[in-house]
Design a protein around this nucleic acid. Structure first.
Length: 481
DNA sequence: ATGTAC
């Protein structure tokens, strides 16, 4: 009827019109089909609308099909703001700054590994520190840590963790410029010093998988993926370090919003004008946390290769474990996008969303110029994960972004309640997945039924053409926090 | 996600 009703545009898109809430400056757009629409939370819709009311928003307030309610901004949200008139908001990035995923391919076949998978998972579990508050194997001095914050994965490679070739296959080369170690609190330094090169907890994991199905031969071949070949996926972020940075800057920005007369529909949306000193400081600290996460995934990669080589008694070349790609799922970046036929710099917030740049984009390494940026989308530990590629449609419609995962279906609490009296590890084993975790509660929170079906989520973004399916990956061994 | 409430 009126211009205040949510309206389905097509099979993949739902519009939240500007009139839905009086303070909205632009429309909201949620990528969901009618199947996933039934799981759409009212709170998440409100959050998309709230983000649409922030100053300087460019284009629409967007959300991906894995949307759910988060801190201020929904998880699965994408929003871009004008450099001159817009804002930056820590809630638009989230607490786990540069939580992200990397995928390693190998020359192993699943048949090489299946008979010995249990011991291999045990071996990985022994070498990869995991769990809440777990401490790392690397002893960092404060000076080391400052270098790491500036250099990210480059620091890891310089210190013997992996090779220079790895860096080419990481978003932003695994090192984002403009990180400032001076803007980090002592508390963050202390947490970060102990936790570098650890997996963490919750939905973070290290997973041994095999390529289940190839949808796009050319793209899969460019990534070195063949049906049956073994891959490893690592999902982790900036641990307590990024959490502390977010906490510190939410406090700082709580004062900034009233100072700059920004009207907030929800106080969790605390932000500051992009050009303000508070915003510049947050951006520099956030970049340090992003680099921390890239170093983290790089160090864990090194140990993963070591465990595989030692366990199988094979050489690096026989293993062939190279990095396919590494993406950030929680980050704010200054990027150039075409808006109304004009190139414009904007600050893109991706919170539970993946960059999905198209073929020929200058930020892509040569080997992916033809196919577009690899997009890595982890599912739950029982079903599948997906590899996709970025598209021009994403560039035109979503600031070069797509979904990031399955999205929770049950709250952690509800999942634990439903898992009472069950042995999730055994249920997983019966499904052909060997799982090793620090605690049974983590397994309960992370059991497959706690998540939406990743295949349904991926179908929406594939059909909307904001990324294209390349391959599905089936888990066979999982290390969890 | 998180020294899962300073």
């Amino acid at each position: 009827m009126g211009c205040t009703d949510i309206k389905r545009i097509d099979n993949s898109r739902l519009r939240i019109p500007r009139g839905y809430k009086p303070e909205m400056r632009t429309d909201g757009l949620i990528f969901v089909d009618s199947l996933l629409e039934q799981f759409l939370e009212q709170g998440a819709i409100e959050q998309v609308a709230n983000v649409a009311s922030l100053p300087g928003i460019v284009g629409m307030s967007l959300a991906m099909p894995d949307i759910h309610t988060g801190y201020g901004f929904s998880i699965g949200g994408v929003a871009a703001f004008d450099i001159d008139e817009g804002i930056i908001s820590p809630g638009g990035v989230g607490y786990d700054i540069n939580c992200g995923v990397r995928l390693l391919r190998s020359d192993l076949h699943k048949n090489d590994l299946l008979p010995r998978i249990k011991d291999l998972v045990e071996a990985l579990y022994k070498e990869i520190p995991a769990g809440v508050g777990s401490k790392g194997r690397i002893k960092l001095s404060s000076a080391d840590e400052r270098g790491l914050l500036r250099k990210g994965a480059k620091w890891a490679v310089e210190n013997g963790y992996g090779s220079a070739a790895d860096l080419e296959c990481i978003e932003s080369g695994g090192c984002i410029d403009g990180a400032d170690p001076e803007l980090i609190s002592d508390k963050a330094y202390e947490r970060g010093r102990q936790q570098q090169a650890t997996l963490g907890s919750g939905n973070h994991f290290l997973e041994i998988q095999y390529v289940d199905h190839v949808y796009d031969d050319a793209a899969a071949s460019a990534m070195g993926l063949r049906e049956g070949s073994i891959t490893v996926m690592i999902h982790t972020g900036s641990r307590g370090f990024g959490h502390q940075v977010c906490t510190d800057y939410i406090q700082i920005m709580a004062k900034a919003a009233p100072k700059y007369h920004i009207n907030l529909p929800d106080k969790e949306l605390v932000c500051a004008p992009f050009k303000s000193s508070e915003a510049r400081q947050y951006l520099s600290a956030m970049r340090a946390a992003a680099n921390y996460a890239w170093a983290n995934r790089q160090c864990l990669t090194h140990w993963t290769r070591e465990v595989f080589m030692n366990y199988l008694s094979i050489s690096p070349s026989a293993l062939g474990m190279s990095l396919v790609y590494d993406v950030a799922h929680n980050i704010a970046k200054v990027e150039e996008h075409v808006i109304n036929n004009k190139k414009k710099k904007v600050v893109v917030h991706r919170k539970g969303a993946t960059r999905a740049f198209p073929p020929d984009h200058p930020e892509l390494p040569d080997k992916y110029k033809k196919i577009g940026q690899p997009v890595l989308i982890p599912g739950d530990m029982g079903r599948l994960s997906f590899v996709m590629t970025g598209t021009q449609q994403a560039m035109d419609e979503t600031f070069g972004s797509t979904c990031h995962g399955a999205g929770r279906l049950l709250s952690r609490h509800e999942a634990i309640r439903r898992a009472k009296g069950r042995a999730i590890w055994r249920e997983m084993q019966d499904r052909g997945v060997i799982v090793k975790s620090t605690g049974r509660e983590t397994l309960a929170e992370e059991m497959p039924e706690a998540y939406k079906d990743i295949s349904e989520v991926v179908n929406v973004v594939h059909n909307a053409d904001i990324s294209k399916k390349v391959a599905s990956l089936k888990p066979i061994g999982v290390v969890k926090g």
